[in-house]
Design a protein around this nucleic acid. Structure first.
Length: 349
DNA sequence: CGCGATCA
DNA sequence: TGATCGCGG
């Protein structure tokens, strides 16, 4: 789920539009994006889209259409896939598994009583991503000519590395953890969701942009202090301290400067002494400050779309409607041949 | 989510 | 042309 700092970023969070990202390389947290598709792309009763063999295809649909949109705007997506999670994440992973199992029971209950709205609500929480789905997602991206980077561990860490190295302009995820990993530029809600007309030009809204350095300056803290706050608030690697939310964590770090000081000074939190094993604190900090990343990933390039393989994968293998796929692919073909690409000119003429 | 059919 | 809505797999 990531760290809750939504209140703290309010001052520096900017709403940007799609045209701000024209020609930009964006490193996308693949798991995060795919999970979102799996949660949202469903029937009214909550069932996923599936091919004739019963394989879930919601994520393929989401990836296919959204990336066409990106390419139309000459936005250059890079998908970064998670590797092996850090050991400290295993508790969180187990918790999520339990939540999914519980949601599945409630979903079945709701289905049996034909309450489709409830069924859908719980179904959204049950989304699972197996290795076959991951491989097929990578294959789809490959056929679309979109680069994929395999992270050795956390994708967000690798994504932050790509940004800071200059291989991507920003990293996109729904989780603010990306900021703790040090990504200087960060996007949330990275999709073309809404649009409005302003003086003859259509602009899309609702993408959230945060500059890490502006965020830290605004709060007057360092990234290390932000990570200390994260440990108090709770991240995927440590559950946090009961009674401490984002505001209290901020006050504490301003007052004591570091989590280590808080522990040394026997700080009291809601009547109880703050107590975390310092070894554990250091291990969590290590994950954010010196994450496992691969500095030698292959050169990032956007290749030509393989129209035939794309059609084969979606239509023949996964029973997508041929008409729909062909007309979507046509957009890509047009991009290839024409100046059909949406350019800055078409926004500000 | 994003598409495309439909209707004002 | 823009907004709404049901469906896709």
């Amino acid at each position: 789920m990531g760290i809750k700092i939504n209140e703290l970023v309010k001052d520096v969070r900017k709403t940007i539009s799609f045209e701000n990202l024209l020609n930009k390389k964006i490193s996308i947290d693949a798991f995060n994006s795919i999970y979102q598709f799996l949660a949202i792309i469903r029937q009214r009763d909550g069932t996923s889209l599936m091919d004739l063999e019963g394989n879930v295809t919601s994520h393929l649909s989401g990836l296919f259409y959204r990336n066409i949109k990106f390419l139309e705007y000459n936005i250059k997506p890079i998908y970064v896939f998670d590797g092996k999670p850090p050991e400290l994440k295993l508790n969180t992973i187990n918790e999520r598994r339990k939540i999914k199992a519980a949601a599945k029971e409630k979903m079945i209950e709701a289905q049996e009583s034909e309450d489709f709205k409830e069924a859908r609500k719980f179904a959204q929480l049950t989304s699972k991503l197996d290795s076959n789905m991951i491989e097929e997602s990578k294959l789809l991206l490959k056929h679309m000519g979109i680069p994929v980077v395999d992270a050795p561990s956390e994708g967000e860490a690798q994504s932050a590395y790509l940004v800071n190295r200059g291989d991507a302009w920003a990293s996109a995820s729904q989780d603010y953890d990306t900021l703790l990993f040090g990504s200087e530029r960060f996007l949330r809600n990275f999709s073309v969701n809404r649009s409005k007309k302003v003086r003859d030009t259509t602009i899309s809204l609702d993408i959230e942009y945060i500059s890490l350095s502006k965020f830290l300056d605004n709060l007057g803290i360092t990234r290390e202090q932000l990570i200390d706050m994260g440990i108090l608030i709770g991240t995927d690697f440590f559950p946090g301290i009961k009674g401490i939310g984002q505001h209290k964590a901020f006050d504490l770090i301003k007052k004591h400067e570091s989590l280590e000081n808080m522990l040394k000074n026997n700080v009291q939190v809601s009547g109880k002494q703050l107590n975390i094993d310092i070894e554990l604190v250091n291990r969590v900090k290590e994950i954010f400050l010196r994450p496992k990343i691969n500095p030698d990933y292959p050169k990032i390039t956007w290749r030509k779309v393989d129209y035939d393989k794309l059609e084969e994968l979606l239509v023949e293998k996964h029973n997508f409607s041929k008409n729909r796929v062909v007309s979507a692919i046509k957009k890509l073909r047009d991009l290839d041949s024409d100046k059909k690409q949406i350019s800055l000119d078409s926004f500000f003429k």
